[in-house]
Design a binder for these strands. Structure first.
Lengths: 208, 208
DNA sequence: ATATTAATTTAACGAACGTTCATTTAATTA
DNA sequence: TAATTAAATGAACGTTCGTTAAATTAATAT
């Protein structure tokens, strides 16, 4: 047998992406074989090479795609110039965007080590771009006195780790709604940088 | 050749542990071969089987060892019963203990997926034990009104992710001392749960 | 000095790996 | 309808994988 009735390159390509993403996230890049991917797609391993030159490029493409989408969506989301509001927008965006893409996020944070130098440089640069967005917000907020940021770099790393960590425990259909989770994390992020905003239980910070 | 002059089982065993830990953390469990480990130890791959029945048991043993040490050290560190002080002790301990064990921590968080069911259950139980320590502190603090904990489980996960994240960026010999980093993280953790403690710039929270 | 135990080697097993290549069939174009 | 292009197959390549077995030598105990 060779070409199969009804076969479509675009469909197969997207199936390869879908299956690779799930398998890489679940088992790790190195532990997944081309035959394993092919089997779940419903083709032979050799068919994958019609779409990707090698296994490594599947990973690079998945990561590139995710980071591009993340950056684009983030820029669209940050609409205000006020640092505090902007920090809240960022926190909420990060939770909202990542909570529904657990596999992409996991890959992005865990499989950088599986990238060869060229791909690594590309993806690391995109990640750095994203981190810089948050650092700028923190620097602005600290400078204008509305936040208490000990160290913008450390704070940014801490906030990102905290937010991204939601994927280690969240499973859809759980006890808490996504909106509720977003609220909790946004509140913790703001508080962690010395901002108090709970409207339900309003407080005021006064120097004594 | 066979047995080598001066060879010592205890030395070889600990070399295997050391090398495996570094390689698993750097490349991922699945990407590391027995021959690769053996080569760095300075023996043939078959020699490893004198010490571990298979590759999987090396990983299990490393993770088991790390979690045991973590739990033991943590219990020793938490000396006070005051929830706020206890939370600070926990945060500082977690940073201090983990920052010097980046490979173990990375493995513990990333290679649970590489464990077969039995080993997974063992390690997951130990991790859960550790998480429960933090959750209890948060519950106590919230109940007694000295903290504002939206949800103890979410807060615990957020705090752990934030603290553990230090290993994604910290490299020894960097700009900040370990003590300074500990201070920054401890402060963020406390603030994130509605506690204000900065002694240098004292404030008071007043309900309006 | 001899027997035993500890530590390692070399050689080999079958299985799986990523990848290439020639071939085959379906769909599209001329 | 014929020629071309798209999408897949199946077989094979050399390599590496985890693991086992038998042999060999060093250290220790008798």
């Amino acid at each position: 047998m060779a070409r199969i009735a009804g076969s479509d390159g675009e469909v197969t390509r997207s199936e390869i992406r879908k299956v690779s993403l799930a398998l890489f996230a679940q088992c790790g890049y190195a532990a997944v074989s081309m035959r394993q991917i092919a089997s779940q797609v419903g083709v032979q391993a050799s068919a994958i090479y019609q779409y990707y030159p090698n296994k490594q490029q599947i990973l690079v493409s998945l990561l590139q795609n995710h980071m591009d989408g993340l950056l684009k969506a983030c820029h669209k989301e940050l609409t205000t110039s006020d640092p505090v509001e902007r920090l809240e927008q960022f926190a909420r965006f990060h939770i909202r965007y990542n909570i529904n893409r657990p596999d992409e996020v996991f890959l992005s944070y865990m499989e950088l080590r599986s990238l060869e130098p060229e791909g690594f440089a590309t993806i690391a640069a995109l990640r750095s771009k994203y981190e810089t967005i948050l650092k700028s917000i923190l620097r602005d907020g600290d400078k204008s006195g509305v936040m208490k940021v000990d160290d913008p770099h450390v704070s940014a790393m801490a906030i990102l780790a905290m937010l991204t960590g939601v994927n280690t425990w969240y499973r859809s259909g759980g006890r808490l709604s996504q909106k509720k989770i977003e609220n909790i994390y946004a509140s913790m992020v703001l508080k962690s940088q010395g901002i108090v905003t709970d409207t339900a239980d309003k407080e005021e910070v006064i120097h004594v």
